[in-house]
């Protein structure tokens, strides 16, 4: 695979932009709407995912010589679930208010296709350091997406950022509701596609 020849910086960049989980690959979409009604929640989930993604990549990469290919899927699952449990318990203990709102979605990180996919496609075939950068890149990419989406939603929907009031008047309440979440992601995705097509000659997202 050509990916192996990439430098660490390229790996990082690839995860952040080229293969951005949400806007380019369009996987792990659920949290992009569920927890992006405020920057605080979005960042919290983004960091959690980044942590799990990176740790899983490192662990799988370290174990890759010992895992029999036939049982690799349950092993991957176990590793992911283990880290998710750790972050779940950490959040439950130290970040109670946020946990109350997004606890379910933290637990559901376990079913994220992106984490599983990187373990399968990259970490299980590469050394530890590249795996770390790959996981970190994917994680940061995810975090960035979370930040962009929740920035717009919180600003438009509440006139606030991180809970601090910025705009007075009547905000577009819908933006922090489910419908507004879908709309925001759809419009942002379309916008990024437009930028990509207009300035980088891309063909737009492949779609699922």
């Amino acid at each position: 695979m050509s990916i192996q020849k990439k430098s660490n910086w390229e790996l990082l960049k690839n995860g952040m932009f080229g293969e951005n989980t949400i806007f380019r690959m369009a996987i792990s979409l659920c949290p992009s709407i569920a927890v992006t009604n405020g920057l605080k929640n979005g960042v919290a989930l983004g960091i959690s995912v980044m942590f799990v993604q990176t740790m899983v990549n490192i662990t799988i990469s370290a174990m890759r010589k010992f895992i029999h290919p036939k049982i690799r899927i349950p092993i991957f699952m176990l590793v992911i679930a283990g880290y998710v449990t750790i972050i779940d318990m950490l959040m439950a203990t130290y970040a109670r208010t946020i946990y109350r709102e997004i606890g379910l979605y933290i637990q559901i990180i376990v079913a994220f296709a992106s984490i599983f996919a990187r373990a399968e496609v990259f970490a299980s075939k590469n050394k530890i350091v590249p795996s770390l950068f790959d996981g970190l890149g994917m994680g940061i990419g995810f975090l960035l997406a979370m930040i962009v989406i929740s920035f717009f939603r919180e600003l438009l929907g509440k006139g606030e950022l991180f809970g601090y009031s910025l705009i007075s008047g009547n905000p577009l309440l819908i933006m922090i509701l489910p419908a507004g979440g879908f709309l925001a992601v759809g419009l942002l995705m379309g916008f990024f596609n437009w930028v990509d097509m207009k300035f980088y000659g891309g063909k737009g997202a492949s779609g699922v």
């Binding site: 419908a179 979440g181 879908f182 419009l187 995705m189 737009g204 997202a205």
Partner: peptide, 23 residues
């Protein structure tokens, strides 16, 4: 559908409008 919105973006917007109706 305008090219940048083909596929996933417009699907998200549809989902948003359905969600609006479901409220």
């Amino acid at each position: 559908v305008p090219a940048p919105f083909k596929g996933l973006p417009i699907s998200f917007i549809i989902a948003g409008l359905i969600a609006l109706a479901f409220t």
